[in-house]
Amino acid sequence: MNVMIEATKLTKVYQMGDEQVHALRGVSFAVQKKDFIAIMGPSGSGKSTMLHIIGCLDRPTAGELFIEGLNVQEAGGNKLAEIRNQKIGFVFQNFNLMAKATAVENVELPLIYAGIRKRERRQRALAALERVGLSDRIKHRPPELSGGQRQRVAIARAMVTEPAFILADEPTGALDTTTSGQILDLFAELNDEGNTVILITHDPTVAQRTHRIIELLDGRITRDSSRNGVGA
């Protein structure tokens, strides 16, 4: 099974008093295993909304969503939490690390919710930190790390559960150009190793390094490079 995500006519409507805000107006796409996708589009076009829905943090107002063949619509709250824990790795623009916990403790967190025992947890967290090149910073706490290092810890945390795909909302948005490049290199390497990666970016140079670009405008997909390139 090579289809990771299958989204059909996803819509999201926010009710703001009397007004309806249409964040997504029927978005359809599929994500294959090993895809490396950039989602682009102007501010307010619905990128984050879409990412939250395929990340099972939010439910669509209408439409269908399958993750590895599983109908997300039918899943309850606990099941969604389980999907997030086991199938999805999140990377955020502002890292969202536990400030008082060490790097390795941060990386262990999703494994705690997965119910994995302490010894194995520690081993896997250390391996993940080694993978992102932070073996010498395992006892550092986030405030003692640079922005790039923090984002590496966050990436290690996202991949430590060996998820089906990694979702990153502007992962380089808070970093300078050089560091952004390094973080992007890391995503590219992870993708080479077989990981599916979907990231939101405003930066065309970042987008260029991915294999597929989905462009959103006003809640609709205006361009999907795989359709143009491969599918069309």
């Binding site: 939490a81 997030r84 999140f90 969202n96 999703p110 945390r157």
Partner: peptide, 16 residues
Amino acid sequence: TREIGTRKALGAKRRD
């Protein structure tokens, strides 16, 4: 609040 959101994103259930 952000920590709680993060924990949920990482797979924490309501019960947790």
